[in-house]
Design a protein around this nucleic acid. Structure first.
Lengths: 129, 129, 129, 129
DNA sequence: GTGGTCTAGACCACC
DNA sequence: GTGGTCTAGACCACG
């Protein structure tokens, strides 16, 4: 597929898969109604245990992002896109809040924090805008 | 003491204690050469098991932040302050980087990210300075 | 496994386990990439509490000798062998130095010391080679 | 007095004092019948807790090395010298045996060990004889 | 099944 | 009083 997993990430592998699928749906790399790779196929691609992929898919079904097509596999649910967009932003926001709170607690002033953020942003994408 | 622990944080309690102590040393709330609360005392204050505090303190020893004074207690190591400052910034930076990378991957543009950061910063401290 | 623990050794049990594992890695009784016995298995074998083994393994992780494979177990880290060899020799050398320094201080002349060393060496392995 | 204590030695402070006194008696730096420094005096000199010195002296009395002189203090017991010599050698031998056993276990061959011993001996006293 | 964490309670050596 | 170690047993997330 189009994303990579880091098993030594701290974040659970299945959770990484869940997020990446949601990201992909949010940016319409997979569209509603399309099928996603089978458990076995994705497991092979990502070199993880099939159980792990299955667990991720189960989670995604519970979250309403995936839907079963009997005898065929799993497709992206009809209204998944908007939901994934929202969830993605909420997730980012929550994690951001956590980091900033920790920074605050460690006595880092807001200007220093802004500088840090800018540095990281610029490093990620060549330009600063 | 001067920090709170959230047992349902995802982050292990002992790890939270480690960080908080490092934060405290970094901002000189505890100075080099000073004793820190005894295992039992801090455990009572935070309402956690003494073993958990002991584990955090042990970690802080191997990190070079604390040193034992036999039969007396634990003191902040001589050069711990600068080290804690560096570690603190590195930790924040690493977490920031992780969040921003995830944001990037989910197709959030830099301006949107900046806006999010600003919102969170302003919410944390009433004014923007 | 292939080593024994003496709980009345003065040296902490978890520390004995740490050393023995390092010795084993150093002499390639366990090779890099191989899995080591699970916490529970080794605990059963050595007749100690699983927590004690877990603590030793945790130490070995922070020492860079072991690495976790999530949900699977612990493997010997890639470059662990050379490191363990060095650490082992350093450990022996440090302890030797301590003993010899004490001997020196107690007015034992070098020839007497050499004789003692020879006696002990010969007693350990039948021949002197 | 004529010896130094290392509180971060691993060996208990009181035990270090006990050994040093025995060493001193063994090499006749203090002779039988002589008085040794008072608890308070030695504690001040070594910058340790008087309790610790007291405990060492108590141990030395139990071992028959020191004897009380009523209302005056502690003197070296009449036949202490020979006993201390023997104990010292036994102690060195025991520790040597422990180190060599560990070395053996870590697959260090006897020639390597002899080399290590020689290196350390030569470093301690300028000449190798 | 695996390791990771936490609690509870005990004993020890040291100061 | 202090920290250090060990045991016992429980719960969790992960594969």
């Amino acid at each position: 597929m189009f994303f990579a997993i880091d098993p030594a990430n701290g974040i659970a592998v299945y959770e990484q898969i869940v997020r990446q699928v949601k990201f992909a749906v949010a940016r319409e790399a997979i569209k509603s109604g399309e099928m996603i790779p089978s458990v076995r196929e994705l497991a092979r691609e990502l070199a993880v245990n099939p159980n792990t992929v299955a667990r991720a898919y189960r989670q995604l079904q519970t979250d309403g992002v995936l839907a079963t097509v009997r005898g065929t596999g799993l497709e992206v649910a009809p209204a998944a896109r908007e939901q994934c967009r929202r969830e993605t932003i909420d997730l980012i926001r929550a994690r951001l809040r956590q980091v900033l709170a920790e920074a605050q607690q460690s006595q880092l002033a807001s200007p220093d924090l802004r500088r840090l953020v800018e540095e990281e942003l610029q490093q990620i994408n060549g330009e600063g805008t």
